Amino acid sequence: MDDSAKLGTIGVILLLLFILIGTVSASVLVTISEDTSEEYDLDTMVDEVIDEVCSYLQIKHVIGKYEMVQDEQKINKIGILIKPFVSQNIDISHMTIGLSNGEYYYMIFFNGVAESLRSSSLFEHPIWSSLDQGSFSLLSTIDDDNSIVDLHLINKYTDMAFIVLQLPDGIAIKNGDYLEVTILLSPGMGRTIYLEAPLSLKNVVTLYP
């Protein structure tokens, strides 16, 4: 890891320490008689920050699209916008994604297809035609050296890309359903988020944050 990456990592660790200190201070102020939801929210926030730091990966945004699945409006297409904390090599070909709704658990894998989003709408991009329900692809949004498309490699802290995936029918989510998504960069190094499907007032909806 070069000097800039080391400095970036140190900065992230310091940020984590400040957040943990703030969380402990806030927890002291919560009385026994109060509802525990506030403490749960704080714990969830800390867990997410720790996951981000340990995986060196930020999840900036998650967007879903409602479509008819088994005669119901369900979200079955998802785009996950990712960005590294620091400049380092992240080999997408080694990445896997775990999906769980509490009843089913699926593992999906990179299908070797990476393209640029620049000239197309996210859910209308031709890349969706290359997807099946057991794989994901990449759409780069910022990639100065084209390493994502050419090498399937995220190598700069400025790189950003959408992970695009089509949910298996058995795990597509409707209003009120939850989905646990875990991005595994390597064994023991992952990032987990929890998504809830909102009302289907629009076809395209924000799922995170």
Rank of each mutant, 00 (worst) to 15 (best):
L7F: 15
V28W: 10
S25C: 13
D3V: 15
L15N: 09
I10H: 00
D2N: 15
L15P: 01
A5D: 06
M1T: 15
F18T: 09
L17N: 05
G11I: 06
T31H: 03
L15M: 06
V12Y: 07
D3W: 12
V12D: 06
G22R: 01
G22L: 01
K6F: 12
T23E: 06
A5I: 04
L16K: 00
L16V: 07
S27R: 01
G11D: 06
V12Q: 08
I21P: 00
T23C: 04
I21T: 11
L14S: 07
T31S: 09
A5K: 12
K6D: 10
G8V: 02
T23K: 00
D2S: 15
D2I: 15
S4W: 12
D3R: 15
T23A: 10
S25F: 13
T31L: 02
L7V: 13
S25N: 15
T23D: 09
T31C: 00
L20F: 11
G22N: 09
A5G: 11
V30R: 01
G11A: 08
M1W: 14
L17W: 06
V28Y: 11
V28Q: 08
L20H: 01
D2G: 15
L20D: 04
V24H: 00
T9I: 11
A26P: 05
D3S: 13
M1K: 11
I10G: 02
T9G: 03
K6I: 15
T9H: 07
L14A: 08
V12R: 14
F18R: 03
L17T: 10
L29G: 10
S27V: 09
S27T: 09
L20K: 01
T23S: 10
F18A: 04
L20Q: 07
V28C: 07
I13F: 07
L20C: 10
V24A: 11
M1I: 13
L17E: 04
F18M: 08
L20T: 08
L14E: 03
I19V: 12
L16Y: 02
D3Y: 13
T9Q: 09
K6E: 10
I13Y: 04
D3C: 11
V12T: 14
A26H: 09
I10C: 04
S4T: 15
F18I: 03
F18K: 09
I13V: 12
D3Q: 12
S25G: 14
S4I: 11
I32H: 03
T31Q: 03
V12N: 10
L15Q: 03
V30A: 00
V28I: 14
K6M: 12
G11P: 03
